[in-house]
Design a protein around this nucleic acid. Structure first.
Lengths: 249, 249
DNA sequence: AGCCTAGGGATTGTTCAACAATCCTGCAAG
DNA sequence: CTTGCAGGATTGTTGAACAATCCCTAGGCT
């Protein structure tokens, strides 16, 4: 602000990078750090749906106070990764078919709208904006070659998160983050992640190529069908699981 | 699940009503009660955008501990009604034109999709589902006759909340609640609420009549234009305010 | 004068220990 | 088999305390 100079833009960019690093390390400290650890444990399956998170237990493991831990719980609660039950504690939520349908309905609405919206502002959209999507596709392909299917799922989800990011809407980004986090909860009840994720590596690349060719309308159309197929895949896996192991409700 | 009976549906409905009442009275107690009070203060304008909420000050007024108050802050933070600034406290957010555009983009996407989606499940949608919308319109008309324009704004927003409710999507409901809460923050920077809300009383009734006539496609089309107009109205009022009182940034 | 730097005071971030309220479990009684 | 009642465990909430950080002002420097 105070130092006006010719290299302003260069310096500001540099400062911003440092600031981002500092913010990443510093952050709201304890509460968010604890939330980060728990978030990973949940999304990676260490804490399965239905599990209860005991306060005293976690205060010892995470080495934070009960109050701070509760703040971490609140953070994750509003990401949809935990649910509070009054006087009973926090639990990893158990989603059902109805949630699958709900989640995919929103995914379709948001993602398809983002792609359709790109057509109207095509000129101002530099090609470099597609680079994150490109990286995600390559990461997914590499993970597939290494037979690391959960990693494929993660990369595919990042692809969609970055796709939403093209809309430059902070609220859409936040909503999508929440939706995908909930979706990840669903993946853990599925026995065969390969069948679930494999087809979409190629389809993601297909979407990316359509975007690069600026064929937005066809991208939107393909994406719509893509999401319908993905929903059916999860519902099928879900139904299969439900038959083998009847609902505990 | 376990007790099969002929009156099952009747009894379940009754039990659900009681359960809802209990939940309303009991709740998470202190933290959520404090959050309720603060929420009203913010949405009704007692706490204007930019205001800081002092912890010690509010602990005395709300008669809760600092830790509990902080939990209330977290709740409101994730509704978009407060923002945390590390080591500086919580503030009522100040939204700008960019936020208006962002909010309305999402409103259009969600609401229009809900209406379009109604066409596909028209048979299973009893007419009674439209009653809440009907009530909202009448409340708005009554408030307008009494010159209570903020109340008109509230009723109009409930109309849209109930409209989204027709989709039976808990996540859409939650998102809409958040979006409308943020929108309410914007209303407080507008000098003349009458011009802002009055036109939409009649337009809401128009939408309702189209819905009752099951003309979903035209409803969606009208709603789209409706939201574009509303966005323009707020942007205009915003620009007007910006000219009289340059940004404090 | 203008700018950088240091110190004081206030506010937030976090911890700890304690108590009240609620839930779950198991067991006894009808 | 259901109902009612301890007992123990867990959560909800409080209050005080300390550390860390920010804001503002005062003072020294060029």
């Amino acid at each position: 602000m105070t130092t006006g100079g010719a290299e302003e833009t260069g310096r500001q960019a540099w400062l911003r990078t440092v600031a981002a690093d500092v913010a990443r390390l510093d952050r709201s400290s304890s509460a968010e750090r604890a939330a980060d650890i728990l978030r990973r444990s949940i999304t990676e399956g260490a804490l399965p749906p239905g599990a209860q998170l005991s306060e005293v237990e976690l205060t010892e493991v995470l080495e934070v106070s009960r109050n701070t831990l509760r703040e971490a719980f609140r953070l994750l609660t509003h990401e949809g990764l935990l649910v509070y039950k009054l006087h009973r504690g926090v639990f990893v939520p158990e989603l059902d078919e109805h949630d699958v349908i709900d989640l995919y309905r929103l995914r379709r609405v948001l993602e398809v709208d983002v792609v359709r919206g790109l057509a109207e502002r095509d000129p101002e959209l530099p090609a470099s904006r597609l680079e994150p999507l490109h990286d995600d596709v390559e990461v997914a392909e590499a993970a597939a070659r290494a037979d690391r299917w959960p990693a494929v799922g993660t990369a595919n989800m990042r692809f969609h998160q970055h796709l939403i990011g093209l809309a430059d809407s902070s609220r859409m980004d936040a909503m999508t983050g929440r939706l995908l986090a909930e979706l990840r909860l669903l993946f853990h009840v599925i026995a065969t992640p390969r069948e679930l994720h494999e087809p979409y590596i190629e389809r993601n690349r297909g979407l990316l190529e359509l975007l690069e060719a600026r064929k937005y309308e066809q991208t939107a159309s393909d994406l719509h069908q893509y999401l319908l197929d993905s929903e059916q895949g999860i519902l099928a896996a879900f139904l299969d699981k439900g038959l083998r192991q009847p609902a505990a409700t």
